[in-house]
Amino acid sequence: MTTCDSPIPGRLCALQLRLHRVRARYKAPYGAPPWCAEPAAGRTAAARTYGTRRLRERVPRLSAAVPTHPHWAAVGRGRVVDARTELTHVRTAGAEAA
């Protein structure tokens, strides 16, 4: 599932990866479509709005869950910034493994 080669708990790595994925899915419709793109057949505007709303609700919850995880209380004060930076790079390791 996730590849954490560090003392970061697997649950926290999974939360971070889920946050990256949800944020990417939320941002995807706002990017410029390719020149040959046609509107998706069969999806109504209501369905697209519902999916976007669900993602928009999940992003803040996941964004709050990562920094408030109990693991950070066990990390020494001088090491917190390095550990959080290390956690952001888990996305790369997880993407390479998938």
Rank of each mutant, 00 (worst) to 15 (best):
19 L>I: 11
37 A>W: 12
18 R>K: 15
54 R>G: 00
21 R>L: 14
21 R>S: 13
91 R>I: 01
85 T>N: 05
95 A>H: 03
57 E>T: 03
2 T>K: 06
26 Y>E: 07
75 V>I: 09
31 G>Q: 04
10 G>M: 02
97 A>F: 14
26 Y>Q: 13
38 E>L: 07
80 V>N: 11
13 C>S: 07
32 A>C: 03
26 Y>L: 14
56 R>D: 01
47 A>E: 13
52 T>I: 01
28 A>N: 09
81 V>I: 10
41 A>H: 10
33 P>L: 09
82 D>T: 02
94 G>W: 00
26 Y>P: 06
47 A>N: 03
74 A>S: 13
72 W>M: 11
22 V>I: 11
22 V>G: 00
83 A>C: 05
17 L>M: 14
21 R>A: 12
7 P>S: 04
7 P>Y: 11
62 L>T: 05
69 H>K: 01
12 L>E: 04
62 L>Y: 12
80 V>C: 07
33 P>I: 13
30 Y>K: 15
52 T>D: 09
74 A>D: 10
90 V>T: 10
19 L>M: 14
13 C>R: 08
15 L>R: 03
3 T>A: 01
46 A>Q: 09
50 Y>P: 08
55 L>M: 02
34 P>C: 11
43 R>A: 01
4 C>I: 12
21 R>M: 05
65 A>K: 02
45 A>V: 00
55 L>N: 01
18 R>C: 01
78 G>Y: 06
50 Y>D: 13
33 P>V: 03
62 L>G: 09
90 V>N: 00
5 D>T: 08
39 P>D: 05
32 A>T: 13
5 D>M: 04
3 T>H: 08
84 R>H: 13
34 P>K: 13
80 V>G: 11
49 T>E: 08
83 A>T: 08
64 A>M: 03
7 P>V: 10
79 R>G: 08
15 L>S: 01
2 T>P: 01
85 T>P: 04
18 R>S: 07
